[in-house]
């Protein structure tokens, strides 16, 4: 059995997708439920862009702020999508189609910083 990998975009013309990678899991508030389509996760901000193309970024998610940078992948990632291959209406098994390529990612590898700090408790003066 063999599954063919095909690419309709041709070399150099592949759509380029992006990856934002962060430590841990992003969890919506329980009140939101399963309908998260269209929900804003956070705001990605480019704070500087150095000549080495490794710019600095912040990603603000709710009351959390992450700091990260753009990383070139040592080996590119291809995004493959399973397709039913058909010839004259006959299904001929599965094919994998290259739909995109990923060459960089924005990596947030440090733990998030809380944007709201706990209120300070004033010490009572000793009389």
């Amino acid at each position: 059995m063999q599954i063919r990998i095909r690419c309709n975009c041709g070399e150099g013309a592949c759509a380029e997708w992006a990856i934002v990678e962060l430590q841990g899991v992003v969890e919506p508030q329980p009140s939101i439920g399963d309908q998260i389509q269209g929900l804003e996760i956070g705001r990605l901000c480019c704070t500087s862009s150095s000549s080495s193309s490794q710019g600095s970024y912040t990603f603000t998610v709710g009351y959390h702020e992450l700091t990260g940078s753009r990383v070139s992948l040592k080996k590119p990632l291809l995004v493959l999508k399973k397709m039913k291959a058909a010839v004259d209406g006959d299904e001929r098994g599965t094919e994998l189609e290259v739909i995109a390529i990923i060459r960089h990612k924005i990596l947030f590898k440090s733990r998030p910083k809380a944007l709201i700090s706990r209120p300070q408790i004033k010490e009572k003066k000793m009389s």
Binding site: G42, C46, S48, Y57, L77, L78, K81
Partner: peptide, 25 residues
Amino acid sequence: LAAGSSISVRYHSLFGSHDDMLLLE
């Protein structure tokens, strides 16, 4: 994204597990 600019990151209207989609290094 230019320095000093920001962009909204959201779940796509078609967001899901998309098990038919995989990454190959």
